[in-house]
Computed example of a mutant assay.
Amino acid sequence: MADNLDFDTFLKVDVRVGTVLRAEPFPEARKPAIKMWVDFGGDIGERKTSAQVTAHYTPDMLVGKQVVAVVNFPPRQIGPFMSEVLVLGLPDDAGEIVLLRPDQAVPNGGRMH
């Protein structure tokens, strides 16, 4: 279990929902991954990321799906690709990532409570 943190620290993590506009394979990544361009609406707009989710998803499956991501981490260089957000997921029984997603459509940019 991780260390406890106070509520003010939790509020600093900006977790939002967005819709995948475009997705494509990322063959240059060290581990199999998919590049995604996600629309978070409003002031955040479109951001890109890569995610190691190839066990359960193809690029075509992701387009139009809503995902949950941390949008206030600094950008991170992943090989030749600059990742701007961290899409969130959970491991299945085999350790493969399953994306966190709302079970109903919600407005892009909605912040996690």
Rank of each mutant, 00 (worst) to 15 (best):
F7Y: 12
F7V: 12
D8C: 04
D8M: 08
D8K: 13
T9W: 07
T9Y: 10
T9N: 07
T9I: 13
F10Y: 08
F10N: 01
F10K: 05
L11W: 08
L11I: 10
L11T: 14
L11Y: 06
K12H: 10
K12D: 11
K12P: 03
K12N: 13
K12C: 10
V13I: 14
V13F: 12
V13K: 11
V13A: 15
D14F: 00
D14N: 09
V15Q: 11
V15E: 09
V15N: 04
V15W: 01
R16L: 04
V17H: 05
G18R: 01
G18H: 07
G18I: 02
G18L: 02
V20C: 06
V20E: 06
V20P: 06
V20D: 08
V20K: 07
L21P: 01
L21V: 08
R22D: 14
R22S: 15
R22K: 15
A23Y: 00
A23C: 00
E24A: 11
P25R: 11
P25S: 15
F26I: 02
F26Y: 13
P27H: 01
E28H: 11
E28Q: 15
E28D: 14
A29T: 08
A29V: 06
A29I: 04
A29P: 03
A29D: 13
R30E: 11
R30H: 10
R30A: 13
K31D: 05
K31C: 00
K31Y: 04
K31T: 12
K31S: 11
P32T: 03
P32D: 10
A33Q: 03
I34T: 04
I34W: 05
I34D: 08
I34H: 05
K35Y: 04
M36Q: 10
M36V: 09
W37L: 12
W37G: 04
W37R: 10
V38W: 00
D39P: 02
D39Q: 09
D39N: 12
F40N: 02
F40R: 05
G41L: 03
G41S: 05
G42W: 02
G42N: 09
D43I: 06
D43C: 11
I44W: 08
I44Q: 07
I44D: 06
I44T: 14
G45W: 12
E46T: 13
E46L: 03
